[in-house]
Computed example of a mutant assay.
Amino acid sequence: MNSTTVTVTTWSLEQTSPADLNPAAVPEGDDIRIVRAEVPSPEFSRFLYASVGGDIQWIDRLALTYAQWEEILDRPGVETWVAYDRGTPAGYVELDPQDDGTVEIMYFGLIPAFRGRRIGGHLLSYGVQRAWDLAERWPERTPTKRVWLHTCSLDGPYAMDNYLRRGFRLFDTKTAEEPDVPTPGPWAGAQG
């Protein structure tokens, strides 16, 4: 079998102080609410993951079992914040705290139909604020000293610009050859 590869560049970015955050404006005229999904739900989290990442090759979690999703979501301090546009999920940010006071923005993005409406900057700003004050909701967690994330050349064309505008600084760049897999879409047959 002949497999093809694609060159993927991955950038890691960080903030080391809450003062680093340059929040985006709240989108005008839209009824955008951001709400924490307080009840861990593998079904809902998988829906968000597949819907946001289906067209940009988010595939790492698609093969996880229900129990594996539960294990990820049940860790103390893991939070999912969902943006809603008039009651419809538009995107999400998933926070993953570590024991050393570092919080990774594990996943962040918008469902394709909601991109290009200035919701992403607002959702990212809100998610970063929640990463910085995470220990207030989880007293057993170490106060946040650093918020970081990674993005890659497969992500949306405005992702890196959004991160830089929010005050993230680049601290690492890696390039690797990865299998060129078909983009699955948010459900079977979505790309066909």
Rank of each mutant, 00 (worst) to 15 (best):
G167T: 03
Y126I: 08
M106G: 11
T183M: 13
E38H: 10
S41L: 04
Y126F: 14
R141A: 09
V128R: 01
R146Q: 11
V78N: 15
W81R: 04
P23K: 11
I32Q: 01
E178K: 14
R86I: 00
W148Y: 13
T7N: 11
K145A: 13
A188E: 12
R36C: 07
A37Q: 15
P186L: 01
T65V: 10
L149K: 01
T144V: 07
V26K: 09
V26Y: 06
I111M: 09
G116V: 09
A19F: 06
K145N: 12
Y107T: 03
R115N: 13
D161G: 14
P182Q: 05
I72S: 03
D161Y: 10
R75P: 02
V8Q: 15
E28L: 12
T183N: 14
G77S: 06
D172L: 14
P182K: 04
L64Y: 08
E178Q: 14
L13V: 11
D155C: 10
Q68C: 06
G91W: 02
E43A: 12
L124I: 12
R130Y: 00
W187S: 15
W69Q: 01
L21G: 08
W148E: 13
Q15D: 06
N162E: 05
I105Q: 00
I111H: 09
P112G: 12
M106F: 09
D85R: 13
A25H: 10
N2L: 05
F108N: 05
D180P: 02
F114V: 01
S41G: 07
G101C: 08
L154W: 03
E43D: 13
P157G: 11
K174E: 10
R130K: 15
T80P: 05
I111K: 02
D31H: 11
P143I: 04
H122M: 02
D85G: 03
P89G: 05
R75H: 12
F44K: 10
E79R: 02
V6I: 15
R61M: 14
I105P: 03
E43K: 13
D55P: 00
S17Q: 07
